[in-house]
Nucleic acid binder design. Sequence first.
DNA 1: TATAAAAATGATAATCATTTCTATTATTTC
DNA 2: GAAATAATAGAAATGATTATCATTTTTATA
Lengths: 130, 130
Amino acid sequence: MALKYSRQREAIKEFLMNRKDHPTADAVYMEVRKEFPNISLGTVYRNLTLLADLGEVARVNVGDGVDHFDPNTALHYHFTCRECGCVQDLDIDNIVNINEMASANFDGEIGGNVTYFYGICGKCKRKLLS
Amino acid sequence: MALKYSRQREAIKEFLMNRKDHPTADAVYMEVRKEFPNISLGTVYRNLTLLADLGEVARVNVGDGVDHFDPNTALHYHFTCRECGCVQDLDIDNIVNINEMASANFDGEIGGNVTYFYGICGKCKRKLLS
DNA sequence: TATAAAAATGATAATCATTTCTATTATTTC
DNA sequence: GAAATAATAGAAATGATTATCATTTTTATA
């Protein structure tokens, strides 16, 4: 199944590349629809999955039951606000090697881990204090 | 809404308390159904949610899109096998304080984190090598 | 440039975990 | 034991995601 160009996929990628708020498939759909009013939600899902499989974007899980997408595929950590639901990058210098810690006393193979943080974001924190 | 006793809830709790394989709501349903053939899946969900809210069991997310339930509510980490889907506890001596690491350079409040590990379990590893 | 093969699309149906309804049943209180 | 109210069973609803399929685009080639 050789890849073929598609304007829709290009628009999805283009939109995502300029985002740092980790939009969901539906958010991408809402936005790309402005340029392609007939685009189908299925096409958005299909292309996001394709891009994720190609390693061009990352699928991010922050425990809210909805997949988010991130143009930054480098290893980094996410925070999600329980108040407003926003997703942000966290600037953690160098996460310890928890995979090795987990490997001790374990007879299987640790392939990796998923870690995300939650709490209240700066904006919501300030709002609650006023 | 004062809590009232229910035999179904008791059976669900009883079943879960003796498990260390982190069953899903459906797995609980399948089992409790042997004692209560008419129990509804909705009742299982309702009670698992209630027990989780009461802090009597823990809801565990291992990224497979299904909630698992754990009678052990103490802080500990989980591993899930990408081969067979099993969920196991990990014996990590002393987990680092990643919440504090995440709090640096962050203007919100870190409330906690979700961390789970994935890979191939001992049983599947051995099976693949034979 | 026309054409034909293959991939991508839009529309919609299907799936799957979970939640929500509602009439009925069980538990508790008096 | 009867009234009040929480819990249930069963079924429908929901929300995110995937699958299906006839039609349209893309692209390699004659």
